[in-house]
């Protein structure tokens, strides 16, 4: 009884599925009209998001730090060998220096092969950070404990992208960057003159030079 019922059910299902097959044929999209590598060589708009990790090579007075780095890369493929793009990078810093580092750079890129590219860039940055291991005492050798200022940025990057399709590519990148920030911070110095407390504003100024090396994973679209 159960076998017969199962056979009937199978027949019903088979006939039903056959009816659906003829009523709604499977959709087809076009075959590729050009090779995916050729597609990526064509001029046009490019967008990439990358996520990475970098470490700051400490050199006093700049405090050491490590950072998680999400970045946005926007650009235009000019020819099959060259692109011009811009990167907005946001480094969330931790370690001895906590805060946020931003940079915006303009970058020409040389596409050595279909996947391998070399990039160099110059631009502007901002550093908002404070030291977690030090606080400033107003002495002759005072070192800043915080910085919130603009900066000059230079970077270099090598990237290898795997062409997943005509529209998407992904791959690793290695990036080096330098950021020179002119930091100025104002402190209040309290001194007693007899019974009277006097407050003096002291402005400290220093240069912080960040040299970082980082690895990224890039997701690119065209």
């Amino acid at each position: 009884m159960s076998l017969r019922l199962g056979a009937v059910c199978s027949l019903v299902l088979a006939s039903t599925s056959a009816a659906f097959a003829s009523d709604s044929p499977k959709a087809r999209i076009s075959d590729d009209l050009i090779d995916k590598h050729q597609a990526w060589r064509e001029p046009g708009f490019r967008l990439a998001l990358s996520f990475g990790y970098e470490t700051n090579l400490a050199s006093p007075p700049t405090p050491a730090s490590t950072s998680w780095v999400p970045s946005l890369h926007v650009g235009w493929r000019l020819t099959d060998r060259f692109s011009l793009s811009s990167t907005l990078r946001y480094s969330v810093m931790g370690g001895s220096l906590s805060g946020l580092r931003f940079s915006g750079t303009l970058e020409p890129t040389w596409h050595i092969t279909d996947g391998f590219a070399v990039t160099g860039g110059l631009g502007y940055g901002v550093l908002m950070g404070s030291r977690t291991d030090y606080y400033t005492e107003i002495t002759d050798n005072a070192v800043l404990s915080a910085c919130d200022d603009g900066a000059l940025v230079a970077l270099a990057r090598v990237t290898y992208l795997f062409r997943v399709g005509h529209l998407f590519a992904t791959g690793p990148a290695l990036q080096l960057d330098s950021q020179w920030t002119s930091c100025t911070d104002t402190y209040e110095s309290y001194e007693w003159y007899g019974d009277e407390e006097r407050v003096t504003e002291v402005a400290l100024q220093d240069w912080w030079w960040h040299k970082t090396i980082g690895v990224l994973w890039v997701f690119a679209w065209r």
Partner: peptide, 28 residues
């Protein structure tokens, strides 16, 4: 991708330079 204040420029709340507010709001 929508990034508010992409360059993290500082908005001063008072004459004191330390009264600046820096923020960015990236949204995906």
């Amino acid at each position: 991708v929508d990034i508010v204040n992409a360059t993290l420029s500082a908005e001063r709340l008072d004459s004191d330079p330390d009264s600046g507010l820096r923020y960015t709001l990236p949204t995906v």
